[in-house]
Amino acid sequence: MNPSMPITEAPGLFTADGLTGLIFLVMMAVTLIGGLIACCAERLVRAVAGLMVCFVGVASLYYFLNSPFVAMMQMLIYVGAVCITIAFAIMLAAPEESKKNGPAGPLSGPLGFITAGIVTFGLIVMALNTKFPILAKVNQGTAKEIGIQLLTQYSMVFELISIVLLIAIIGALVLARAGRSK
């Protein structure tokens, strides 16, 4: 993919650009369907499976955005670690949604839908009506350049985030062990 060359004329389906566009449409559908399953599925195990599908789609979108390194990290961290951790928690806590409607009542579904619809509509209208200035690129954003930036300009943030992760691991262990009986 050429990083900074907008396609002006419509590509044919069986050219390289056309097939790329077709794959992009498929992955966009995968992302949206996965997200729908994740937010609407009745059982939590299915929601986690939908989340996994959605994250695979998001990883391919990152690939389309010229960032194969971030796409790989998405697959490793989200699909490989976060989803599996959530699946473990579901198995450990066994949360079957027994009661359909609690005090929130049958209204929570439509009201939630309206809230989400308003937020989504607002964001789309804002994206539609804003003119974003396009600036000249100073580099290509390859994995090598990411590494150089991480160890020079962003080295402090890099160290801090590792401390955050360390504290998170220790905190998770302490929290999960605390009330354990034998």
Binding site: G35, C39, V82, A89, T115, T120, L123
Partner: peptide, 26 residues
């Protein structure tokens, strides 16, 4: 924006903590 809307919908309507966490990931 669509993914964000799905996340907000799940966060509002889910009844379990893990379901809300899944929506926050979205």
């Amino acid at each position: 924006a669509l993914l964000f809307g799905m996340g907000v919908y799940g966060l509002v309507t889910r009844r379990t903590l893990i379901g809300m966490l899944i929506s926050a990931e979205l």
